[in-house]
């Protein structure tokens, strides 16, 4: 089990490296090209999509319904309300066996 601690520690080092590394690399450049800036601005949307899209492919009707409901709620509510409302819908749909 001692080996597991080492794997965790090196995993933590690698993770911290990703969190500080992007900045260390980019800060070497004096000014940032507009296209690079456009790319950086795209990072949140681009990454978040990759955490959602594949899960949507493997999901079923209950999950799709929850996502559509979330998008609808999100037109008015903020993230918290959106999340909890759609989470409740998902749980209800699963409980009644709609999936």
């Amino acid at each position: 089990m001692n080996g597991m601690i080492w794997v965790i520690l090196f995993g933590a080092l690698a993770t911290y490296g990703t969190r500080i590394g992007g900045h260390l690399i980019l800060s070497r450049f004096e000014r940032i090209h507009p296209r690079v800036q456009a790319g950086l601005n795209a990072v949140p949307a681009a990454v978040l999509t990759t955490l959602v899209a594949p899960a949507m492919i493997t999901a079923g009707p209950a999950e799709w319904a929850a996502i559509i409901f979330a998008a609808f709620i999100g037109l008015r509510a903020k993230l918290t309300g959106m999340f909890f409302a759609s989470a409740v819908l998902l749980i209800v749909l699963r409980q009644i066996g709609f999936s």
């Binding site: 949140p44 949307a45 978040l48 955490l51 959602v52 999901a59 979330a70 998008a71 999100g74 993230l79």
Partner: peptide
């Protein structure tokens, strides 16, 4: 039954939607 497996995508979707 508690939908735990899909909570993460649902939450990330909400964050994505804000952008």
């Amino acid at each position: 039954a508690l939908g735990l497996d899909f909570m993460l995508p649902l939450y990330f979707f909400g964050m994505l939607y804000d952008f």
